[in-house]
Design a protein around this nucleic acid. Sequence first.
DNA 1: ATCAATGCAAATCCTTTGCAATCGC
DNA 2: GCGATTGCAAAGGATTTGCATTGAT
Lengths: 142, 142
Amino acid sequence: MSEENIKLLKKVGLKITEPRLTILALMQEHKMEHFSAEDVYKLLLEKGEEIGLATVYRVLNQFHEAKILTRHNFEGNKSVFELAPTVHHDHIICVDCGKVFEFNDTVIEERQKQISKEHGIQLENHSLYLYGKCTDIEKCEK
Amino acid sequence: MSEENIKLLKKVGLKITEPRLTILALMQEHKMEHFSAEDVYKLLLEKGEEIGLATVYRVLNQFHEAKILTRHNFEGNKSVFELAPTVHHDHIICVDCGKVFEFNDTVIEERQKQISKEHGIQLENHSLYLYGKCTDIEKCEK
DNA sequence: ATCAATGCAAATCCTTTGCAATCGC
DNA sequence: GCGATTGCAAAGGATTTGCATTGAT
């Protein structure tokens, strides 16, 4: 696994360093979860890893450039990252507690293609975010 | 027109003040354009208006709360605002020529509500952008 | 008169950068 | 060894907030 990651880093032209391997592994352990730079930094601290916050920012940006990670700008003013999904999905975000759900709806995907076609556009890509509030207030801590 | 805006502010429960009226008028003059707080501040300065940047931020947030304005969080670290469209629409953008089409699809809108519900979220808002390329290359100037 | 709104500066939050020390190749 | 990477602290940009002043009703 670490071998795989070393290959991956080489492939995208980044040197093999301990911070990069550690952060990459962390993101892989938490596939489908979304972390801010601060989140990653704290998780590393908890694990006893000594990696500076500035380095976390630098590595996340490099991984994003290399398309290893996807960057999202949800409502609010900070970026969150997730391991680039192999299968496409969209997001639902609670604007109160920040919880994120993922979904993939074939009906919507199909309509998007259809609508694009009607407007003379060959659809290549899209971004869809649904924002709302948890209906179960118990489970929604601000 | 100013009469209209006074009514509008009253309706949403905001007191009639000169900064609010000025900013509201500014946004109306530039329907369909999006401005950051800084943009608005500078435009006001150019017009010789004496409104503090902090007030611009406060007013934009209040207008957003009141749904007079729509807030977008594009890539980058700042919010931009535009006069809330009277009729909701989403966007299709040609990544080559930058052309923008608007559409509103009830099938997609319905599915969004449904999907949110299934995840325990009361949908309040969404952002949907379709990116592609003009199929008619003639009409697509880079 | 009263309570909200404003302006300014200071504070905060998120992120980037300068620079010397350290590490990978 | 040399250039890239890191850590730390300082700088930066966007946005918010505290507080005294001004303004709206």
